[in-house]
Design a protein around this nucleic acid. Structure first.
Lengths: 232, 232
DNA sequence: CACAAAACAGAGCGCCGCTCTTGCCCTGAG
DNA sequence: CTCAGGGCAAGAGCGGCGCTCTGTTTTGTG
């Protein structure tokens, strides 16, 4: 149904992909704010004005890249998750995969979680893609709960009015109560936050072993969220 | 000693301040990546080339703004801290003050903790300014420990090789051991991270009451760090 | 008062995002 | 097969950007 029917449409779809790929390649070197539409055009050997036949503005191109990035990092998280493994192992595997992706795609990570382009408002279509990575984390919590391997330590409780009601039943399996969802949100926030700190250099002269500290963070955050670790 | 001696130096120092102030004012509207040196010059009614007598490049201006921002947010944190109050109250007061500053200076916050300008490397001079805000948090922990009001819950331990040795004795009062320092680092990371999420819109359709969720986060993170709260 | 140094304005370079015009060529209807 | 219509690309151009270079004005001092 969405297969291109005419040769024109086929060529259009292909060139759109090529532009996105070139832009992605550019992102590997210069960072989102410096991503130049003209440079992308140069890389493809076309006039800069021709790009506008495919993306109405630079921001639209960035939005497409954001969508791509969310799906990439979501795939990395999902791909690292082995549902048959123990919750602690699953948790760590996802965290490591997300960090690894972020390290090797630092500018794409910046595009997703750094300063948004001024005036940019996340289109609703990106929401599902953006949710894939945190959902992978939530699945581990939900599965652990269903398997009776869920031990959230005591702590302040979260008033149900603080989180969106829809957040409570987006899991296909065992549902999480509001306190558990809140800690899941915090874990997602932590995963992004600690990688941001590392990438932005805020941990320079603070931590001595970034990978090791990340591992510690993953365990700590998992523990707070309720994931049991064998050695903890 | 650093008072300007000649009228010229006085004028130069004043104009430097004016440029910085105008740039700060610009930052209130457009965001770091869009901060235009020419616009700053226009606001001051001078030629854009004249700015270069005071700041050798746009990045140098941004660095000056970063230093200013770190001191601002550090002052906000320190100013909100009443050393005579209970640890829990101090903790919450600092968190609230930092959030409030960040909300009303969102672009300066982005400048400090968002995507760094490409190729920017934090000069060492900014380190002490950048440390003021987290140090305010650490002081609460240290004081609480000295007063016997320090109750860090169990959790994974942090290997001493993971944090910089200097981090262990930068407190004038009661020293913190590595596990406590590690949790302090995480609390600092959380404070920045949760504000980033809120400012960047990642909590849209996730939390329903951002201020309330922040309050919950502050309590949760304080609890993990070892701060006792009366009602928790 | 004369003079060197500091400050400044303006033009200009190459880059940017974006628009408009021009012409090509593929497509599908007559 | 012919031929108009439309998708398409290229180029010039607009205003703005960071930054530099060149003269001119201002300023403090011997």
């Amino acid at each position: 149904m969405n297969a291109p029917r005419t040769a024109r449409e086929r060529a259009r779809a292909e060139l759109t992909k090529e532009i996105l790929s070139a832009a992605k390649h550019q992102l590997g070197e210069v960072g989102p704010s410096a991503l130049s539409l003209r440079a992308v055009a140069r890389e493809l050997g076309m006039a800069s004005s021709a790009i506008y036949r495919y993306f109405p503005s630079r921001d639209e191109l960035l939005t497409a890249l954001i969508l791509d990035g969310y799906n990439d990092i979501g795939s990395a998280a999902e791909g690292a998750d082995d549902p048959a493994a123990e919750p602690g192992e699953r948790w760590l595997a996802i965290w490591r995969a997300v960090r690894e992706w972020s390290m090797s795609h630092r500018y794409e990570f910046a595009l997703l979680f750094g300063t948004p382009v001024p005036g940019y408002a996340a289109p609703q279509e990106t929401a599902t893609a953006a949710g894939r990575m945190p959902l992978a984390l939530a699945r581990v919590l939900s599965d652990a709960k269903a398997a009776g391997k869920f031990r959230p330590p005591p702590g302040p409780s979260c008033d149900p009015s603080l989180v969106e009601p829809g957040m409570l039943d987006l899991m296909p399996g065992e549902d999480l109560v509001v306190d558990e969802v809140a800690r899941g949100i915090l874990a997602w926030n932590r995963l992004v936050g600690v990688i941001s700190f590392e990438l932005h250099g805020h941990l320079n002269n603070v931590t001595a072993d970034d990978a090791g500290f990340f591992e510690y963070t993953a365990r700590m955050e998992g523990t707070v969220a309720g994931v049991p670790f064998g050695d903890a």
